[in-house]
Design a protein around this nucleic acid. Structure first.
Length: 263
DNA sequence: TCCTATGTTGTCAT
DNA sequence: AATGACAACATAGG
């Protein structure tokens, strides 16, 4: 379940389990998940170790003792795993890194949308792939500049990773709910000051989710998302949340709070 | 059987 | 050239 707050937890997990252990074997179930190819992955990592991590949006970079980085992207269904017995490997462990101490790091990915790649540095990867700064790091000025006056909808723009990275489908819906904006509002209809409000909401949603360790059960009562996954009722009006499609994604919204779609 | 799912990217059109 | 819309990818579970 990886959007920015979830990947922040993955980051913490990896740091606490899998750093500074020599990698002695890499088992690859499906090479399609390894962008650089299995040979390049093995030559980059065998006899090396992970030494540090950097997270940008939904991307997690593992620095190696050979001074390269391994990029992990989890797709829609990915998560990291750590286990000491191969037999205990979680179902859907697609790539497994075996450490010299007998433990293992697993890249678990049911749907195979996750990807592993090797790059020379975080900066070089970020530049090559046009990946924006982390959404928690972008300035208000840069946020407004990136969005103001564009032709697309707010939700589509929030989902792009180019200008600021880490927003996914549930966070986009949560931001639009808390900003009290229609699910399909166009950026041309939003003033700079309204976009500053969206920025503040984005920071609040991300900061809160990270502080609560991405645990949906602990999200505040004014958050919509737990209701989207639960009783389907707006936390403010008590009415049923509406469902539609915006930017090609399932979109939940409160008619009473956000108003009707434009059609 | 059919539909949905927390994401990205290639392709085609504007 | 740049930007935007949308299908495609792969799999499990309801």
């Amino acid at each position: 379940m990886p959007e920015l707050p979830e990947v922040a937890m993955y980051d913490r997990f990896v740091r606490s389990t899998s750093l500074d252990k020599t990698i002695i074997h890499i088992e690859i179930e499906d090479e399609r998940l390894v962008t650089c190819g299995q040979d390049a992955l093995r030559s980059a990592l065998l006899k090396q170790s992970f030494t540090d991590t950097t997270r940008i949006g939904k991307f997690l970079f593992l620095h190696t003792s050979a001074d390269q980085v391994v990029k992990l992207h989890f797709g829609m269904t990915g998560r990291p795993a750590y286990f000491t017995d191969v037999e205990a490997a979680p179902r859907f462990t697609r790539v497994r890194f075996a450490f010299a101490d007998g433990s293992h790091f697993g890249f678990v990915n049911m749907r195979k949308f996750g990807r592993i790649d090797v790059a020379e540095s975080v900066a070089s990867y970020q530049a090559a792939k046009k990946l924006g700064s982390d959404a928690l790091d972008i300035s208000e000025e840069a946020f407004v500049k990136a969005l103001h006056g564009r032709k697309t909808t707010l939700k589509a723009a929030l989902l792009q990773q180019k200008h600021f990275a880490g927003i996914g489908n549930w966070i986009a819906d949560e931001i639009m709910f808390q900003a009290r904006l229609r699910a399909d509002v166009g950026l041309r209809q939003l003033s700079e000051s309204e976009l500053m409000g969206v920025y503040d909401v984005m920071q609040h949603v991300l900061r809160t989710a990270v502080d609560l360790e991405a645990d949906h059960d602990r999200f505040p009562a004014h958050f919509m998302v737990p209701h989207r996954w639960g009783d389907g009722l707006c936390p403010e009006t008590g009415e049923a949340l509406q469902k539609t499609t915006v930017a090609g994604r399932a979109t939940y919204y409160s008619l009473g709070v956000q108003g009707p779609l434009v059609e």
